[in-house]
Design a protein around this nucleic acid. Structure first.
Length: 286
DNA sequence: CCGTTAACCTGAGAGC
DNA sequence: TGCTCTCAGGTTAACG
């Protein structure tokens, strides 16, 4: 479920706890995630030191000594739990789940000296991808479109990736190969703020509309990160802080609510675009 | 090459 | 209670 802002929060919590720590052991309980966990995953990670934890779009990048990279994607329901030795109370690293370690769907356990980190994922849409050299890591990133917070994400990039496409702008925003990091919530929110109808075709967008898209995709994601992400269910990060961007939703899950634009008396509509729920105001978004 | 659809999974909640 | 149906913050193989 997490999109760029939520993955950023998870990454920060993870980084704070595991950077410069050595992985003493690895247990894979279930290899059948979106991609099968590599056969030598345990062997390669064991006794390696975590040099850094980064993020690009919705991918968490764990950098280990010896040019080993682990790309972690949380899919729809992936969460991390950090459990300190000899302390019964669990510390949750994740969004969207209870503070306690779930009983079912724990798939991967990383054991450190003073704690262990457990990956839980009921639907198993997430993955752990092992990349064994810098080249394959670079290649992996190359196949992802720029995220709105990337310095290369600019008007020129938007023009060349949007203005010739027949598909609708919402599908473009959700296509990680074109623009990465945006998911269903933020696509809806960005389009409302940009005054763009989600069904509008990419090639119909005018330059001034691309400028709005540029502005609001950055702005919405940044603000969501500042607010600690969005959440519909309970969650805590390691500081016990809650995300609150859900209070700033203007259209997502607001069908039949009044349009937030005070000068408008229309109701927010709910439609489906390529099987994803889409919320918009037909008066404010042209 | 392009765009759309079905499929991958489990669990929560609504309606009966 | 329990059954069936729909929906969920994601991605991608397969198809036309």
């Amino acid at each position: 479920m997490p999109e760029l802002p939520e993955v950023e929060i998870v990454k920060k919590s993870l980084k704070k706890n595991v950077k410069d720590k050595k992985i003493l052991d690895v247990i894979v309980i279930n290899r059948n995630l979106r991609f099968k966990v590599d056969k030598d995953f345990e062997k390669i990670l064991k006794n390696r030191k975590i040099q850094n934890v980064n993020r690009y779009a919705k991918n968490i990048i764990v950098e280990l000594n010896g040019n080993i990279y682990v790309i972690i994607h949380l899919g729809m329901t992936g969460t991390f739990h950090l459990i300190r030795n000899n302390i019964l109370k669990n510390t949750n690293l994740s969004f969207y789940q209870s503070k306690d370690l779930p009983i079912k769907h724990n798939h991967i356990v990383l054991i450190f000296k003073k704690f262990r980190v457990i990956y839980n994922d009921p639907r198993r849409f997430g993955f752990f991808k092992l990349l064994k050299d810098k080249e394959s890591f670079k290649l992996y990133l190359k196949n992802i479109g720029y995220e709105p917070l990337d310095k290369n994400f600019n008007l020129k990039y938007l023009k060349k990736s949007i203005q010739f496409r027949k598909k609708c702008i919402k599908s473009i925003l959700l296509d990680q190969k074109i623009i990465s990091g945006i998911g269903n919530i933020y696509a809806n929110e960005i389009l409302f703020r940009s005054g763009l109808n989600p069904r509008k075709k990419g090639l119909k967008l005018k330059n001034f509309e691309l400028k709005y898209l540029y502005k609001y995709s950055k702005l919405v994601l940044k603000k969501a990160i500042l607010k600690g992400g969005s959440s519909i269910r309970d969650f805590r990060n390691t500081e016990g802080a809650k995300g609150s961007f859900q209070d700033n939703f203007k259209v997502y899950d607001k069908d039949n609510h009044n349009c937030p634009n005070k000068k408008c008396n229309y109701k927010i509509k709910k439609i489906k675009i390529s099987n994803r729920s889409t919320f918009y105001c037909e008066n404010c978004q042209k």
